Simulated scan of single mutants.
Amino acid sequence: MNNNEPRLPNGLDEFSMTTASKQYSNIGRAWYRFSRNYAAVIGLIIVCSVILMAIFAPLIAPNPEHAGSFVNFRARHLAPSWEHWMGTDNVGRDIFSRVIFGYQVSLALVVGVLSLSVPIGVLLGIVAAYAGGWVEQTIMRFNDMLLAVPPLALALAITSILEPSLINAMIAISFLWWNWHCRLIYQLAKSIVTEDFVEAAKLSGASHWHIITKEILPNCVAAISVKTTLDAGFVILFGATLSFLGLGVQPPTPDLGTMVSTGSNYLPEYWWEAIMPGLAILYIILGFNLLGDGLRDFFDVEV
């Protein structure tokens, strides 16, 4: 054996090195395609900025103590300035600091709602498409029944029964959000179950769970990713609507919808108390929508 011949690292062979290089190459090409969509990149930057602000809120906020039960009547209703970028509210709290902490509540709502509703909707949609028969009819007719009810009316009914809080707002929104994913994945999985590779898995004796999770679900990941990203903005808007009506997060917890509701009492003289939190809601929703549209073009899926 030639001692000068280069050796591969321990545990690696030429095949694994080739596979790894192909994966890195695919990731590079995928990022290049995504980066050509400037709107999607802007959306990604916006979403990342909001996430970073929420994570490091105590360090970024100029007045982190204003996120709680803080009162300073000498500084109430101050217009936007270098000291208070978004002005102060009716009790003298810095609105910019409260907006940053409000992003924590909005992102917590997104994570909570989508973590509950997406798995339920996806699983029921795939099961309905795969099982067929009475299982399909039962799941989809129940789904159609919920879709016929106006979402806001259903959420208001649930939150009016429960005590207004962040947890109960998550429950109310999750109860009506899973059916959108169920309908989408059902239509997609219905076409997948007739594909040859699914029939081949059945003939090879694969279990139903294996076919659902290993054959059908991976082909739905692109649509799930796009739908989930687009839904994040709508969940934030829905949660802000509930808070605006007094059925969501309660004071003194900083919530964007509650801040808009409180600030609207002082329009038009102290316009910044409602406009600034409203622009903060617009900012984060715009980010998720731009990112979702970019992913939809990237994966070339219809949702």
Score class of each variant (00 low, 15 high):
F101L: 00
R93E: 12
A108W: 13
S106Q: 11
V110F: 08
R98Y: 11
G112Q: 03
A128L: 08
Y103W: 13
Y130L: 08
G112D: 08
V122F: 09
A131L: 13
V105K: 04
F101D: 01
I100C: 05
F101P: 03
S97R: 14
G102D: 08
V105E: 12
A129C: 14
D94P: 04
I95R: 13
L116W: 13
D94S: 08
Y103E: 07
L124V: 02
V110E: 09
I120V: 15
F96T: 01
L114D: 10
I100W: 03
L123I: 15
V110S: 04
L124F: 13
Q104E: 12
D94H: 02
L123N: 07
S117Y: 07
I126G: 03
V118I: 12
I126A: 00
S97G: 14
D94Y: 06
L114K: 05
G125R: 12
V110T: 04
V127Y: 00
I120Y: 06
S106I: 08
V99C: 06
I126N: 04
S106T: 11
F96Y: 14
V111F: 15
V110K: 04
V113Y: 03
Y130T: 07
L107Y: 04
A129W: 06
V127Q: 01
P119M: 11
L107N: 07
F101E: 00
L107W: 09
A128S: 15
A128I: 10
V105C: 07
I120Q: 01
V122I: 07
S115W: 13
V113Q: 09
A128R: 07
I126V: 15
G92N: 02
R98Q: 09
G121C: 04
L107D: 07
A108Y: 12
V122T: 13
G121I: 01
Y103A: 07
Y103G: 09
L123E: 04
G121Y: 00
V122E: 03
G125I: 05
V122Y: 06
G92Q: 13
D94L: 05
R93H: 12
Q104K: 14
S117W: 01
L124G: 05
V113E: 10
V127W: 07
L123R: 09
L109Y: 02
G92R: 05
Y103L: 08
V110P: 02
G125M: 14
F101M: 09
G102A: 08
L114Y: 07
L124R: 01
V118N: 01
Y103S: 04
A108R: 11
Q104M: 12
A128H: 10
A131P: 14
P119Q: 11
Y130A: 03
I126D: 12
L124T: 00
Y130C: 11
L107G: 08
V113S: 10
G125S: 14
Y130M: 03
S106L: 09
L124E: 09
F101W: 11
L116Y: 12
F96K: 01
I100T: 07
V99A: 10
G92Y: 14
V113T: 13
A131F: 15
S115L: 15
I95S: 13
V111K: 13
F101T: 02
G125E: 10
V111E: 12
G121K: 00
A129M: 05
